[in-house]
């Protein structure tokens, strides 16, 4: 048998390789759910595994480099019935290692808010407050961490509240709501070296002033 070797031009070689690369990428993305080139793909995958079936859109996107990882990215995703905070970062397997904390936005209340505490060895403990408040003008927010202790001597509960105002750069006004993602080092941990017992959001809206407990809480710990 004579030895025949097909010769390809540069263009043909490049196109063939690009086709192979694309096929591999699609296989990894669609079948194995790894190798995502876009952070929103990783977020969407976790949304599905959290039961957010409805289509959602990213209302806010924030780069938080060095929050817990070099390339941390936060998303506030809103659907017709859900509002979720997503977090992802770039890994050797593409955008991955993602978390989503979905909440019900269907109840029609004025405030939907959640808080996620994040810890990682070698990093200070962070609190991520997120959510939306009905109202567009003159809405200012304060995110508080609360420590309640029983004071034996005084026979009363001792409540200590620490918090910071949510800056304008952490808010977004759109479609009748003020959305926010606010990250701060845990003030209770900083001051008392103890964990907070609860969280609250203080809302100033025009003449109104009220505070609400944040019931939607989650923890994430990276090794």
């Amino acid at each position: 048998m004579r030895n025949v070797k097909r010769l390809y031009t540069r263009r043909a070689r490049a196109l063939r390789r690009a086709a192979v690369a694309l096929a591999l990428l699609l296989f990894c993305n669609v079948v194995l759910h790894i190798g995502y080139l876009l952070p929103i793909q990783a977020i969407r995958l976790v949304e599905e595994s959290e039961g957010v079936y409805e289509p959602t859109r990213a209302v806010m996107k924030q780069w938080r480099p060095n929050m817990m990882h070099l390339t941390d990215r936060l998303y506030l995703n809103e659907g017709e019935h859900s509002l979720s905070l997503g977090c992802t970062h770039l890994t050797p397997l593409g955008w991955d290692d993602s978390f989503v904390w979905p909440g019900d936005a269907f109840d029609g209340g004025d405030v939907q808010a959640g808080v996620v505490d994040m810890s990682r060895k070698g990093h200070e403990r962070l609190l991520v407050f997120y959510g939306r408040v009905r109202g567009t003008e003159d809405v200012t927010l304060t995110a508080n961490a609360v420590r309640r202790d029983w004071d034996d001597a005084a026979q009363t509960e001792r409540i200590r509240v620490y918090g910071h105002g949510v800056g304008e750069e952490d808010c977004l006004v759109r479609g009748g709501y003020t959305y926010f993602i606010f990250v701060e080092p845990d003030p209770v941990m900083e001051k008392l070296q103890q964990f907070p017992t609860s969280y609250q959001l203080v809302v100033n809206r025009g003449e109104e002033h009220f505070s609400c407990d944040i019931e939607r809480t989650a923890s994430v710990l990276w090794g």
């Binding site: 990894c28 194995l32 050797p92 397997l93």
Partner: peptide, 17 residues
């Protein structure tokens, strides 16, 4: 570039198999 992408995806394929 396509060759580099193939190398990366092959690694991912191996890890995510």
């Amino acid at each position: 570039v396509a060759g580099a992408l193939i190398a990366v995806m092959a690694l991912e394929l191996f890890l995510g198999f």
